[in-house]
Design a protein around this nucleic acid. Sequence first.
DNA 1: CGTTTGCATCGACATTTATCAATGTATCAG
DNA 2: CTGATACATTGATAAATGTCGATGCAAACG
Lengths: 130, 130
Amino acid sequence: MSMQTKRLKVLEQPCCAPGAPPLRPEIAEGLARRFKALSDPTRVAIVNRLAGADEVCVCDFTLRLQLSQPTVSHHLRVLREAGLIEVSRKRGTWVFYRLVPEAVEQLAFALGGAPTPEGVLATAERTVAW
Amino acid sequence: MSMQTKRLKVLEQPCCAPGAPPLRPEIAEGLARRFKALSDPTRVAIVNRLAGADEVCVCDFTLRLQLSQPTVSHHLRVLREAGLIEVSRKRGTWVFYRLVPEAVEQLAFALGGAPTPEGVLATAERTVAW
DNA sequence: CGTTTGCATCGACATTTATCAATGTATCAG
DNA sequence: CTGATACATTGATAAATGTCGATGCAAACG
C-alpha cells in the first residue's frame, strides 16, 4: 500500500436537492468552502479549461486570462486549497495543474446530480427541452 | 398555453467535469454568480432545509439560525436573486420560501452530475467506496 | 383607530477578497 | 557563476461581503 490513501474529508451526502436530509453545520461549512472556490468567473474558467485537458501549464493561464501573473497564481492557490485542482507535474520551471474529478463529483452529488457512470462526458445534447 | 414559459437564462452545458467543452465568459460569470450564492454556510443550510420540505416560513429560519433577523433576510435575498429559491406564499405576516429545483439541477449538471430521473432522492448509500 | 407581529430595507462597520507591483525562489541556458 | 525564465509569495489597496441595530411597512388583532 503506497501512500495513496484517498482522503475524502467532507460531504458525501446530497444537501440541496429535493429530499435531502438535514446537514450538520460542519458539512454545510465544508460545502460552502468549496462553492466559494467556484464563486469567481476566473476560477470557473480555470476549472473549465482543466476539464478539457489532462493537464494545463500555468503559463497557459497567464497567457489566456487577462490578468497579472500573481493574480492567476492566487486563483490557482484558492482552487488548490479547496481540493478542486492539484499540481500534476513540474518540468523545468513549468508547473502543470490537473483537475481532481472526485472533488467535482462530490459537489455535483451534493447538488443532487446522479453520479455519472464514467465520470466523463455528459455531452451537450442535454440542451434541455424547455 | 398559460404563462408558464420556463425561462432558463444561463448555462445548460457542463463546465467543470472532465470532457467539458470550453465555456464562453458570460457563461462562466453566470455560473460563478450562482456558486457565490452557495458560498456561505448559512445559505447552504437554508437551501438544505428548503430541500427537505415543500416550503419553509422565514420565521423558521430566524428561529433556527443563530443570526439576527436582518441577516437572515439578507441571505434569503441573495439566494432569491440567484434564482435558487423563491417566495412560495404569503399568509398574513408570514412569508414562505421554496426551493427552485431547476436551478439546483442546472448547477449539478454543470458540475457533471447526470440529470436525476425524478429530481428527487439520491440517497446516502452512495457513501463512496474509498 | 392604535398596537403588535413578521419581514424587508437602510446605514454603519469589520472582515474578506480580487487585483497589482515588487520581490523571492527554483530551474535551466550560457 | 551569471542571467533569464516561470511561478510563488508579500504588501498594499479598492471593492465586496457578512453582520447588526434602527427603521419602514403591511397585515392582523383588539
